[in-house]
Amino acid sequence: MTIALRLQNLSKSFAVGKRLLGAPKGVVRAVNPVTLDVKKGETLGIVGESGCGKSTFARLLVGLLEPTTGSIEINGQPLDNADPAAFGKKIQYVFQDPVSSLNPRKTIRQIMEAPLKHLHHMDKTARAKRISEIFATVSLREEFLDRYPHEFSGGQAQRIGIARALAAEAEILILDEPVSALDVSVQAQVLNLLAALKEKLGLTYLFISHDLAVVEAVSDRIAVLYFGSVVEIGNAEDVFRAPRHPYTKLLADSAPVVGRPLTAPEGKETELPDPLNPPTGCAFRARCPHAIKTCATETPQLTGDETQRAACFNPLF
């Protein structure tokens, strides 16, 4: 099985309280070093709550942010400079808010032409041909091309966003909450379209979402992010059914499920740790019912067999 995307020790820190001269006041580690392989044709789901670093992670992967440490390898070729244009042909991004990711003052045709013109240097006729191909693939009507973004509903705009990402002919798509702004009945349309495209074009997806059920429904493997670190990664069918990390279990228990009585799954402190003053050891220990002594002193690393690994000193099994 070929590896489409390999991350080694990829991390990102932000300086906080920058001053004109001199060192910044503090450093926030938004993403702690991540080492990860994504196989070709695989969908890796990434879940986490707000503030867990999933958007920063996504922006690192497409070169919109420069990593503090580590490297990104796509199909065996390293990409370590943060140049979105260099990344663009290999890895593309589908944005969360379909409407604000389209420039309100450009027609859909102008938006679709940009990657063809600047990444592939196609001439006018080649561009027109390619655009109609892509539009046929994502089932959009060509008459949409001369309209402006505000004329579209969320679902249609997201299709256009996907079409734009496909135009770059990248093999890897980063889907950053692609359906969270959409209604459920439309959400399923977009998810099914993504699944069909993947099948047809042999794409590799990184699917980022806060919706556990959606992630579970579309992913082969799932990585759970907490406070900038991957705390658990494993096969999609196992991660929430039989979590090893207590945080994954908390997430799974919190999701509203039809037929499950309403109980607050957590009595302890629920606040995230202060990013400017991170705790020692495991970031989850203050909320964790299974915390042991080691949790406060050492930072847990991902351990376990290939199918399911968790960063926990006292895993659930």
Binding site: V184, A188, Q189, N192, A213, V214, A236, F240, A255
Partner: peptide, 24 residues
């Protein structure tokens, strides 16, 4: 009925989701 079918439920595993074609 179809709206309920659209909603993915945790624990269902990987699957094709039901969709309602068209828009309100």
């Amino acid at each position: 009925k179809r709206l309920i079918a659209c909603v993915p439920e945790l624990g269902g595993g990987r699957r094709q989701l039901a969709a309602i074609p068209g828009l309100p």
